[in-house]
């Protein structure tokens, strides 16, 4: 599915920000480099953005910048900034995890960022109607995600899928979890139960860490 694009000029017009602000936020890492899509148009070189993402990001920055420094904002909003040495004791207090994540907890406290993300994925899967046993696959898969992967989350998705295997009078339904970057392809025999946009989830998690903490 192609994302709807918006021109830089239109972004400035809709949000009221200046060129200076946009370039500054880009420099500070608040707006990911990958969102700047340069195109040659009949009226000269122009930059476009994924519409939904950029407008949402700018709204968040505008909302938060009164109370927080730009550097703090980077840590909060920008998934490619390093997830500081987070050790969180009470994951259920974070809205992206919440009560739905409670059954996935496996230790008293000291959850790392990757582990929190794993819990958030599991909880989100449950909220979207996934079976807890299957949602747990996501948690198991993601809790071991290497840091490098979390630093470059653009296009990262995790998928919960199932496949029917039949033969010898036996029919088996196998569920599995998958982590990768779009475009991901599965063989036609698979049925995707759930697809989670990790980039979005990461951002929500960071934001909630900032709000609670």
């Amino acid at each position: 599915m192609a994302e709807e694009l918006i021109s830089k000029k239109e972004v400035l017009r809709l949000t009221g920000i200046s060129y200076g602000q946009l370039y500054r936020w880009k420099r500070k890492g608040l707006i990911p480099e990958a969102w700047f899509i340069r195109k040659a148009t009949p009226t000269g070189q122009e930059t476009f953005f994924p519409k939904e993402k950029i407008l949402e990001r700018i709204r968040r920055i505008q909302e938060l910048k009164g109370e927080r420094s730009l550097d703090e904002l980077v840590a909060l909003l920008s998934p490619e900034a390093r997830p500081e040495a987070i050790r969180w004791d009470d994951p259920v207090s974070l809205p992206p995890i919440g009560r739905e994540g409670k059954s996935f907890l496996w230790k008293e406290g000291g959850y790392t960022f990757a582990e929190l993300l794993a819990l958030a994925c599991g909880a989100e899967a449950v909220r979207r109607g996934g079976r807890p046993g299957e949602a747990k696959l996501l948690v198991e898969l993601l809790r071991k995600t290497p840091e490098e992967v979390l630093k470059a989350p653009a296009g990262l998705v995790c998928i919960l899928a199932e496949k029917e295997v039949a033969g010898e009078g036996l029919s088996l339904r196998v569920a599995f979890a998958l982590l990768g970057r779009e475009p991901l392809r599965l063989d036609p025999g698979c049925r995707v139960l759930l697809r989670l946009d990790l980039e979005k989830l990461l951002e929500r998690l960071k934001l909630s860490l900032g709000e609670v903490g």
Binding site: K8, Y19, G20, Y23, T43, G44, Q45
Partner: peptide, 20 residues
């Protein structure tokens, strides 16, 4: 190729497009 900014004061610049 392009110059973009809030306040632009340019001399001896050859550009396809200037936005400000």
């Amino acid at each position: 190729e392009a110059v973009e900014g809030d306040e632009l004061d340019l001399e001896w610049v050859v550009a396809e497009v200037v936005r400000g």
